[in-house]
Design a protein around this nucleic acid. Structure first.
Lengths: 243, 243
DNA sequence: TCAATAGTGTCTTTGAGACACTATCCG
DNA sequence: CGGATAGTGTCTCAAAGACACTATTGA
């Protein structure tokens, strides 16, 4: 910067600027299994490869606004849980030009899926996280792996899992989601105890019939979510951080 | 993007681009107290205000490289712990132009301080986090508050505190750092128990004389740090996240 | 009645916290 | 020896895990 600079003399074009994109890793549950939304690229670079949806930010929108816009464009959903994941900025991660990408995680409810294929993609699909494509476009393998790891980790000490559930659900369904995302079996009795103690659920009059005893349905108490976090468990091997 | 695009036809100048900066919140311990490095701005905007050091990224360096460069420029230190904090991208956070800022946290050892005042600043100072300036430049109040909160939170489940310590240190010194950063007193006996159990420290032959019984000095076992995390404590009121 | 699923009770083990005790230096 | 600081031992209490038990439906 020059001396004596002020609003009049400042010239923003002096520095060469990178492009900035927002990528959104969109998770949902489909038949009790964790899925992620990927788009298949129509054009160079990485034509035909699956990628995390995203796009360039506009000059008049914040990062989170950009993420919401992308989310809406890809899935038609709004009012979802959205969280910034990490910013990826290696020099050659995009062959077109220098691109810095701010990655977000979005959790959408199982019921709200209205995918549309945009002009830039040949296909859009929910992929189960257990069986992802071999190789994604750009550094998106890395981005996705980190998103999954963060999601697992945060489940243990936040009420994040509720974002994936419909309005009414049973406690064993909730347990199932925890099992899905944590990748291990949990004890039924202990799960009941902990979730009840947490006081995060509200009992409803509804039940759902099945093959055996009907199950009671519960509602998530959003008002409690902020002051009382549901710490599910501590894991010794916890790894949330990149680097 | 146009159809039929490829490496030849792609034109990176089609989109208007924001500026991207890297800001580094640099922490250290000075006489057992947590301090942060701030620079006083010489020019518009926010002339005279204190700010978190940072600057525009170069096109040929990654985000982390940029952060290391800034760190080196401001403090002359290298080989430090560096971690990405968050990316701030509100539209009007900088009056000059649209600026997206990737914030990093750096932890430097108490002994390695070689501050220099750069051309862009009138002053550079270590500020104790307990007594910061009233109002910082840009949205740096927010950035700094978030950095401190993240640092506190991470101390509880990582070996991060060791990054602030010299090569040899006593267990009670370590306890003191935890107390400083967590902002509360810890029990001596329990601290000894936990740190010994963690097996993260290596006893040395060195001791240090003081007024009472001399204290044994220990070394941090970097090799153990990755596979065994030192989970100091779980706090119900844990808040690491923005939003 | 049994199979199937929902939900509860209880014993054991672990580990955090409180706090009293012992150890080793200097004068 | 006493004051000062370093370091250990142990009791209690609460929470996590294992696991057996009871409950309610339909066929």
């Amino acid at each position: 910067m020059e001396p004596e600079e002020n609003a009049q003399t400042y010239d923003p074009s002096r520095y060469e600027r990178p492009s900035v994109t927002v990528d959104v890793v969109i998770f949902t549950l489909i038949s009790q299994e964790l899925h992620v939304l990927l788009v298949q690229r129509r054009r160079w670079p990485y034509e035909g490869f699956w990628a995390i949806p995203g796009g360039f930010i506009n000059m008049d929108e914040s990062l989170e606004e950009a993420a919401r816009r992308e989310l809406e464009e890809e899935t038609g959903v709004h009012d979802v849980y959205l969280e910034q994941l990490y910013t990826f900025g290696d020099v050659h991660r995009d062959p077109r030009t220098r691109v810095i990408s701010v990655a977000y995680i979005a959790l959408v409810r199982a019921d709200a899926q209205k995918i549309k294929v945009s002009e830039e993609s040949t296909d859009v699909r929910w992929w189960p996280v257990r069986a992802l494509p071999e190789r994604l476009a750009f550094d998106h393998d890395q981005v996705l792996a980190y998103a999954i790891s963060r999601l697992r980790s945060k489940l243990e000490y936040t009420t994040l899992a509720f974002q994936l559930l419909p309005e009414l659900f049973s406690i064993l369904e909730l347990k199932h989601i925890y099992e899905q995302i944590l990748g291990e079996k949990l004890d039924k009795g202990n799960f009941y105890r902990k979730i009840k103690e947490s006081d995060l659920l509200e009992e409803t009059e509804h039940t759902r019939e099945g093959r055996g005893r009907p199950t009671r349905l519960w509602r998530f108490r959003r008002d409690r979510a902020s002051d009382k976090q549901f710490v599910f468990r501590w894991r010794e091997d916890r790894i949330d951080e990149k680097r």
